[in-house]
């Protein structure tokens, strides 16, 4: 797939403080790409470099075929950026804010009115269009800042903690929109501390801590940190059950807790029916058997702990 963003050995220092120490990533077009990392890991700095706000110390970034060191103006026309704190003018009305940003993005006047109305309606802000932005709730302001950033229909969108102030309904709506944008070929870089969101939305993600310490997909990452992937509950005769489980070739590893067994099997879809057959044949009541997986958050925390121990 054609890359939207190519980052090569990106380094950034502020004085003596090294924030990024050689980040390299290739993000294909139409991807929702997550950026994760502990506080101070360099996520915001990375986003600021990608959105042409600050210069890298060394390394190169290419966005949609344009090198950031050579063609910032062209890149700025094609990107949108939403930060955690909504950067909108409180004293201006929603319409005035959007008119201003439409001018910044050089949107032709003929197209502005319809585009603004469409987006304000999409984000349920149309009724408040003449109110000063300062009178909006935090969530509504966040929605306004999203509208400001996507006015020009950017091909690459940087979203930094965008759902922080949104209510569950708006969050759901935004997630659906993000999926739609990606489906239409837009590339989304999504930063969030809510790992469930990364899990739910992102096709791929990178964990950074000055450098990329992991580049993977949410599913692969969870699997990597999952010791047991099946939970089996038997009604009685757990000793007999244990003997069968121990002898069963489908089970790679297991842990018993009274009548429950945590199992690691190669493929739950094919292994579970086989195991049930064996247990039932031995007159053992199977209450339930269900796949289990660790959350992305657990996996992420395990990785960070491992990193910490390695240091």
């Amino acid at each position: 797939m054609e890359p939207a963003i190519v980052i090569k050995d990106l380094k950034k220092s502020f004085g003596d403080k090294k924030v990024l120490d050689g980040i390299s990533l290739t993000i294909p077009k139409g991807t929702i790409f997550g950026l994760l990392g502990p506080n101070g890991a360099g996520k915001t700095t990375s986003l600021r470099i990608l959105s042409c706000l600050i210069e890298p110390t060394s390394g190169e970034v290419t966005i949609l075929g344009h090198q950031i060191s050579k063609n910032k103006e062209e890149i700025r026309k094609k990107i949108g950026c939403v930060t955690e704190s909504p950067g909108v003018y409180d004293k201006l009305s929603l319409m005035d804010n959007l008119e201003f940003f439409a001018s910044c993005y050089q949107i032709p006047k003929a197209k502005r009115a319809s585009r603004i109305e469409y987006l304000l309606r999409q984000f349920d802000l149309w009724e408040r269009r003449n109110d000063p932005a300062g009178r909006l709730s935090k969530g509504m302001k966040q929605k306004l800042s999203i509208v400001c950033a996507i006015l020009h229909d950017p091909e690459v969108l940087f979203l930094d903690e965008v759902t922080a102030n949104l209510d569950p309904v708006s969050t759901r709506k935004l997630k659906d929109l993000i999926r739609d944008w990606a489906a239409s070929g837009k590339t989304i870089i999504f930063c969030s501390h809510v790992l469930a969101e990364i899990d739910e939305l992102c096709h791929e993600f990178a964990i950074i801590k000055g450098e990329v310490i992991r580049l993977t997909t949410p599913q692969k990452f969870r699997e990597e940190w999952t010791t047991y992937n099946v939970l089996l509950d038997v009604g009685s005769d757990s000793q007999k059950s244990e003997q069968i489980i121990k002898a069963s070739e489908e089970v790679e590893e297991y842990k018993r807790t009274e009548d429950q067994f945590h199992l690691r099997v190669a493929n739950p879809k094919t292994s579970n029916p086989q195991l049930i057959k064996k247990l039932v044949a031995a007159d053992i009541t199977v209450n339930y058997i269900t796949p289990i997986s660790v959350s992305l958050e657990d996996s992420y925390l395990s990785l960070l702990n491992q990193e910490k121990e390695a240091i």
């Binding site: 949108g80 950026c81 409180d90 910044c104």
Partner: peptide, 14 residues
Amino acid sequence: MTGTLESVLVTPIS
């Protein structure tokens, strides 16, 4: 302070 500078400086405005 209000974050608008960042929002403006990511646009193509010179």
